[in-house]
Amino acid sequence: MNETFYIKNMVCNRCIASVLEIFNIENYTVESIELGKVVAVEGQESRKENLANALTKIGFELIENETDTVVEQIKVKLIHKIETGETEHLFQSLAEEFSKTETALSKMFSKSEGMTLEKYTINLKIEKVKEFIQLGQLNFSEIAYALNYKTSSHLARQFKTVTGMSMSDYKSFKNWNRKTLDQIV
């Protein structure tokens, strides 16, 4: 019988590959896998405790309760939306996807993560800005546009508030201290 596992800290395709490998080692047959979610069938010698321990050793965590599951799904959706540039009416679209109010989602997220949903989203965007700067393919105005900021000056102020330096200083600094997405919260 299929069982759905929700996994914390899956933020990229390499995470999918790592988690898939653990499931195979622990004798599970994976039916489907995506960021934050695995549908699998236990083998004869599979044990959920062993799976949880193996995942923990490489920085992942099995999620056991509904609130944490929803919070992790919110994170995955935010990462995807920022990656694909779908940031217009972000919180409204999340609320619709989860059939909750924006306020309810925000409170659930804050209680679980100790950080507001808005602050988490800003931190994700700032890490994306750092990536854009490192790639050197877009100027600051184009970066602001790509991330749906109303103006590049708004992005510049937010970047400085979060990082303590201007985007120009960051670009010339060349000591790029980016956080991995799973370390933002």
Rank of each mutant, 00 (worst) to 15 (best):
N2V: 07
T4L: 12
K8P: 00
M10S: 03
N13K: 12
C15V: 04
I16Q: 05
E21V: 02
T29R: 14
V30G: 10
S32E: 11
E34Y: 01
V38D: 13
A40T: 12
E49G: 13
N50L: 15
L51D: 05
E61Q: 12
L62Y: 05
N65V: 04
E66D: 12
V71D: 07
V71T: 13
I74N: 12
I74K: 13
K77P: 13
L78E: 14
K81C: 04
T84R: 11
E86F: 15
F91S: 11
F91E: 04
F91L: 08
Q92D: 14
Q92F: 13
S93D: 15
A95T: 09
E97S: 10
A104I: 04
S110R: 13
S110W: 01
K111N: 14
K111E: 15
E113W: 02
E113S: 05
G114Q: 05
K119M: 05
T121N: 11
K125D: 05
I126H: 00
E127G: 13
K128L: 10
V129E: 01
K130A: 09
Q134F: 01
G136Q: 04
G136F: 11
L138E: 01
S141F: 07
A144T: 07
Y145W: 06
Y145H: 14
L147I: 11
N148I: 02
Y149T: 06
A156D: 09
Q158L: 03
F159S: 06
V162E: 10
T163S: 05
G164P: 03
S166E: 05
S166F: 03
S166A: 07
M167E: 07
S168P: 00
S168E: 10
K171T: 02
S172Y: 07
N175H: 07
R178W: 01
Q183H: 09
